[in-house]
Design a protein around this nucleic acid. Structure first.
Length: 131
DNA sequence: CGCCTTTGACCTGCGC
DNA sequence: GCGCAGGTCAAAGGCG
C-alpha cells in the first residue's frame, strides 16, 4: 500500500475528500453563492440517513440561514436549502452569475418554500446551476 | 493573536 | 405524558 499512496497525490486527495464526505464535511462542496456563511452546527439526520450542516449568514443584520444536506439517493450530490431572505445584497462577484438574483431568489425562495415547498427551487439550484 | 471549524450537550416541538 | 428528531448555542482546538 505504500506505493499506491506514495505516487498518487491525486488519489490521496480524493481519498481525503471521501473521508470528509463520510464525516459530513460539506464545506468542501460548499457552492459560493455570494454570501458569507458560518457553519454553526451539524447533525446526522436519521430521516435521510445522512449528515446535515447548518449555516448562518455572517452579516450582522442578516438573518439568512442555509441548510446543506446530501441527497439520499445521489451520493456526492449536495442539496442546499435557503431560509430567510438576505437583508443585504451579495458582495461576492464569484456568484455574479446569480448575484443580481441571489437576494431576489432568497426572497422568492422564502415564499416558495412556504407555498410550493423547497423541492422545486432546491432542485433547480442543485442540479440546474450545478450541472 | 485572531478567526474559523468542529463536537457535544441542551432545548423545543411534534407525534404516538 | 413520554419519546424521538431536529435545531441551536457554546466551548475548545487547530490553522493561518
Amino acid at each position: 500500500m505504500s506505493n499506491s499512496e506514495a505516487n498518487s497525490p491525486t488519489r490521496d486527495d480524493q481519498n481525503e475528500e471521501q473521508e470528509m464526505e463520510q464525516r459530513g464535511n460539506i464545506r468542501l462542496n460548499l457552492p459560493e453563492d455570494g454570501y458569507e456563511w458560518k457553519k454553526y452546527g451539524q447533525k446526522f439526520i436519521r430521516g435521510i440517513g445522512k449528515f446535515r450542516s447548518y449555516f448562518k449568514c455572517q452579516k450582522a443584520n442578516c438573518m439568512a440561514k442555509k441548510k446543506a444536506e446530501w441527497c439520499p439517493s445521489e451520493p456526492g450530490k449536495l442539496r442546499i436549502v435557503y431560509e430567510n431572505p438576505h437583508s443585504h445584497g451579495s458582495n461576492n462577484s464569484t456568484a455574479a452569475a446569480g448575484s443580481s438574483q441571489s437576494s431576489n431568489n432568497a426572497n422568492q425562495y422564502n415564499l416558495l418554500t412556504q407555498v410550493l415547498g423547497d423541492q422545486s427551487f432546491t432542485s433547480q439550484r442543485s442540479s440546474g446551476s450545478g450541472s
